[in-house]
């Protein structure tokens, strides 16, 4: 009986430890986000925020592409695979794409991506598509901060099947 008690205690302790660890992890959780920014508008918008020295969370790793239309769905999957908890795709506003219509392609592809991610059990909110113009430093900060908050609330991305 004594021994039994002991192993039960041990199991309890382990469970407790695990729960504690998880809670701790969650509290310490810093979302990793990959941001695909098009060269002409959104990357310049990010620079604009920089020029204005607007501070924002450091969680977004920027990968520059010439146009949002270059963002291959595989890039997004690769990001999740590599440990990202969220992906942000930023484009020029409709009608403003430096290459006329790349952002429309990106938008269409994003819709398709969301359906695909759903099948993988990845929440739509982990993959956001939005527009930031070269002048919209504030908007860049706002979108980015929202994204970090959203992904923080969702917690770490568990697994990618």
């Amino acid at each position: 009986m004594k021994e039994d008690n002991g192993s039960a205690n041990e199991a309890l302790g382990e469970a407790l430890n695990e729960a504690l660890n998880e809670a701790l992890n969650e509290a310490l959780f810093e979302p990793k986000i990959v941001g695909f920014l098009c060269n002409w508008c959104s990357y310049a918008g990010a620079d604009k925020a920089g020029g204005a020295q607007k501070s924002y969370p450091p969680n977004v790793n920027v990968v520059k592409v010439m146009c949002s239309g270059r963002v291959d769905p595989q890039f997004v999957l690769k990001a999740y695979d590599g440990g990202a908890d969220g992906v942000l795709i930023l484009a020029c506003h409709p009608g403003d794409c430096h290459y006329k219509e790349g952002n429309y392609r990106a938008l269409a592809r994003h819709r398709m991506l969301l359906r695909m991610l759903e099948q993988h059990g990845i929440e739509a909110a982990r993959c956001r598509f939005d527009y930031v113009s070269a002048g919209e430093g504030d908007r860049f900060v706002k979108i980015l901060t929202e994204m970090v908050d959203t992904v923080r609330a969702l917690g770490p991305l568990k697994a990618l099947v």
Partner: peptide, 30 residues
């Protein structure tokens, strides 16, 4: 712009300097 590269279902299109491999590597790296 690279829009054709992202669209090509056969993976036959690629873009100089922004090759799929380079971008994959960058994603991995960051």
């Amino acid at each position: 712009c690279g829009t054709c590269v992202a669209a090509c279902p056969a993976g036959a299109m690629n873009s100089n300097h922004f090759t799929n491999d380079a971008i994959f590597a960058e994603i991995e790296g960051v």
